[in-house]
């Protein structure tokens, strides 16, 4: 009986003290910004994590938009660097969205994180605050299936628009689901090739075919 493939998690690194990160910059030490946020929003600002000399703060999903507006207008975080999704594959708060923000004038870098539960995949969109979030949020939607409320144009980014699955979720098979992504037909008028391994299963595309008729002839 051959052994079935196991699912391997990447082991978590133990936390290390700040001074152990030779690349840590002063700009990522933003405890003061997080304190200011806490003063303004109180309970909505959650846990604060320092890892490798970088401050990360978890915020409440419901008040994300307010916090984003405050960060941009009052605290000067005008540069939206990046945003992405994480599938933690846990029972509760399965997904996570991170936002990397920069205050260019004061040279500060902040990472915001939002936890999203599998039962409620909605996240407020921050496109109204930072225009740059547009395509990043589309990418997270495409790969993870998180729905960004208030996004102006929430379409798939990479996968075809009629694709049914979210490929970066942990349960998605690495080689995809047969039949979900059709290959082109083997002849111009033939049906789509639904088998992704047609060649391995003995199909050999024909060298030539009936030439498609011109529009005048049809």
């Amino acid at each position: 009986m051959p052994e079935t493939l196991k699912f391997h998690f990447t082991p978590a690194d133990p936390p290390r003290p700040d001074e152990a990160n030779p690349h840590a910059k002063e700009s990522t030490q933003v405890a003061d910004v997080i304190d200011q946020l806490r003063d303004a929003f109180g309970e909505a600002i959650g846990e604060q994590v320092v890892y490798a000399g970088e401050h990360t703060v978890f915020v409440d999903k419901a008040r994300l938009l307010e916090i984003a507006q405050h960060l941009k207008a009052e605290l000067g975080f005008v540069y939206f660097v990046d945003c992405g999704g994480v599938d933690r594959f846990t029972d509760e708060d399965r997904f996570e969205v991170f936002y990397n923000l920069v205050n260019v004038a004061d040279r500060k870098r902040l990472r915001l994180k939002v936890r999203v539960d599998e039962d409620d995949l909605h996240v407020p969109s921050v496109v109204s605050v930072w225009k740059a979030a547009d395509w990043n949020e589309r990418e997270v939607y495409d790969m993870m299936g998180l729905i960004f409320d208030g996004h102006p144009d929430l379409r798939r980014m990479y996968m075809p628009e009629d694709f049914d699955y979210f490929p970066q979720r942990k349960e998605f098979p690495l080689l995809g689901i047969p039949g979900s992504l059709p290959l082109p037909p083997q002849t111009p008028r033939g049906p789509l090739t639904m088998d992704p391994y047609a060649a391995a299963h003995g199909s050999k595309p024909v060298k030539s075919y009936e030439e498609p008729k011109s529009e005048e002839e049809e």
Partner: peptide
């Protein structure tokens, strides 16, 4: 011969090639 209609090659097998003993992944696996 070119320009004549030719038969469309087909395959019957829509499943992934898997090692023995593994479950076959079908479209409703999720």
């Amino acid at each position: 011969e070119f320009g004549q209609e030719q038969p469309v090659p087909t395959t019957q097998n829509n499943a992934l090639l898997l090692p023995e003993g593994e479950t076959i992944i079908t479209p409703n696996v999720l």
